Simulated scan of single mutants.
Amino acid sequence: MRHPTSLWQTFALELDEGRPGFTKGPWFTMNAVLSLDGELDADVLARTFHSLQRRHEALRTEILDDRLQLVHPEPRAALEVIDEVATHAPVALETPVRLRLAGTELALHLHHLVSDPVTLWETVSELAAGYTAALAGESLPPVEAQYWQYSMAEAEQARRIRDNAHDWWKSRVGDAKVCQQPAGSPGSALAFREDLLTASEVETVERLTRQHRGTPLITFLAALTHGMNPHVGAGETFLFTTLFGKRDRPAWQRVLGPCIVPSFLAVPRPGGSLAADVPAVREAVVGCGRYARFPSSEVNAWIENRPRTPFFEYVPQQWPGLFRFGPVSAKVVSAAGPKDTGLADAMAIRVRKTTDGVLTGHFSADGIDWTEPLVHQVRSGFRTYLLAE
């Protein structure tokens, strides 16, 4: 079966055209490693994995260059029993899932073109439930929805809101400023992680966020734009690219597949305090999310000189608790998104809270528009804004 690609998949393919191998390559993956408190029956696990692929078309979907999802009729991946697992493992686009077992460690790897963080954890959850059911001689209930159904519904919604979305984005990006910082001389590509706030500082910021009726995304966006203030004039709007989660119907809550939409964040220049900035940033985030299902290529066409737009994403901590594989408990010990492969383009910032409560940021750039010193300036402004509260 062949179905049109979703908005996310189409966007990712467009990215790969400019950076061959970035999104279609084997390291563009979602990954999880689990520690087991006992040994699993490899034969039962292998059968469960095969059944899981049969149940969910996303796990046997290949993304084609002509922007089609090709669903293969039969599973193409088998359980790998190896000596040692790693957080990252390459996943071929034509076989978008790998499951690896090494003693009391289990690793799942999914290609990001057919997965998102929710898909990662739902796959582990159903694998555990299927294994438990197999031990008891039982079977799981039928799957509620397949990813192609989400893609079709997404396309229909995009058609319904197109006129309103067109007008909203046209007005929003008219005075937008993409924070493109030409370096005095090109630097080296960069990719690094750095703590932004301690656990106690995060607790303080979360308390202020609730007090001002905001969300972590709103708070961190206000802080990030403050960090870029030295480079942007008063009255201007900051423009970032981002991803919005769109499991916005009951049927999509547990469907396997990337229910995410690439879009923009058009955020007003902050006034200097969280209390003053939250209402304007909240209004911007709500509008951007409402009209996210609109072709990003059209929004790009309205941006003067079409500069490379920085990427920002707040990733909530989504590690689940224990999974039960029959009598065996499994605990997540490592999880990660795509591996850095040196193909970073415009600056990208991903912010998340770790399991010990620390706010950490992952920064990457190609060193052309944003060099490492400039990135550290933004990081410093981010902290200063939040801690001044």
Results as ranks from 00 to 15, higher is better:
227 G>D: 04
380 S>F: 14
289 G>R: 08
77 A>V: 07
58 A>F: 02
340 D>S: 07
142 P>G: 06
321 G>M: 01
30 M>C: 14
97 V>P: 03
199 A>M: 13
201 E>D: 08
196 L>P: 06
181 Q>H: 15
385 Y>D: 05
90 P>M: 05
373 P>D: 02
24 K>P: 03
93 L>A: 14
216 P>A: 02
263 S>E: 06
147 Y>L: 06
153 A>R: 13
334 S>T: 02
389 E>Y: 11
2 R>H: 07
148 W>G: 05
330 A>I: 01
223 A>T: 03
274 L>V: 03
297 S>H: 15
246 K>G: 01
336 A>N: 06
262 P>N: 06
80 E>L: 15
155 A>R: 13
242 T>N: 04
16 D>M: 07
34 L>S: 01
3 H>D: 07
4 P>W: 00
373 P>A: 03
232 V>C: 02
73 P>G: 05
292 A>W: 05
329 S>P: 06
320 P>I: 03
316 P>W: 04
283 E>P: 08
287 G>Q: 09
181 Q>R: 15
150 Y>H: 02
292 A>Y: 08
92 A>S: 14
160 R>C: 09
240 F>Q: 02
256 L>V: 12
84 E>W: 11
148 W>P: 10
242 T>H: 03
158 A>D: 09
99 L>M: 03
163 D>V: 14
136 A>Y: 04
195 D>Q: 12
207 R>V: 10
51 S>P: 01
381 G>R: 09
84 E>H: 14
269 R>S: 10
322 L>I: 10
361 G>P: 05
349 I>N: 00
27 W>Q: 13
127 L>S: 09
313 E>R: 11
77 A>W: 07
181 Q>V: 15
233 G>P: 03
335 A>Y: 09
310 P>F: 05
113 L>Q: 01
316 P>F: 03
310 P>Y: 05
117 P>H: 01
142 P>V: 06
302 W>R: 15
122 E>G: 09
78 A>P: 08
149 Q>T: 05
182 P>W: 04
357 G>T: 08
122 E>F: 07
387 L>S: 07
202 V>Q: 08
27 W>P: 06
57 E>W: 06
180 Q>N: 14
270 P>E: 03
22 F>H: 11
236 E>C: 11
178 V>S: 05
342 G>A: 11
284 A>L: 09
95 T>R: 15
276 A>N: 09
106 L>Q: 01
248 D>P: 02
135 L>Q: 06
68 L>D: 02
284 A>W: 10
241 T>C: 03
